[in-house]
């Protein structure tokens, strides 16, 4: 997610009713949390990707229920 977020950065998130393209979200898959940017919204499914396109590869869509919140502040 460089350059927006670097290792060690902290983010504050809030759960929303809906999320839109370009929102940075934190979601949970398996037993891990991930931070990615929404690229496309398909109903209750969100296609996400990293900002660092050279490193980022296609991934499975995120369900709304898996989203922990939208990043509103980083510090």
């Amino acid at each position: 997610m460089a350059p927006a977020f670097r290792p060690g950065d902290r983010v504050l998130t809030f759960k929303r009713l809906n999320y839109k393209v370009r929102d940075v979200i934190v979601f949970r898959k398996g037993n891990k949390n991930y931070i990615k940017r929404i690229r496309r919204v398909r109903g209750n499914l969100y296609d996400v990707g990293g900002d660092n396109r050279l490193e980022s590869v296609p991934r499975s869509p995120v369900k709304k229920g898996e989203i922990m919140g939208k990043v509103v502040f980083s510090y």
Binding site: A2, N33, Y34, G50, S60
Partner: peptide, 11 residues
């Protein structure tokens, strides 16, 4: 909690 930014989602 820790959130991973690298491509660590099962692709």
């Amino acid at each position: 909690q820790i959130a991973l930014a690298h491509c660590d989602v099962p692709c």
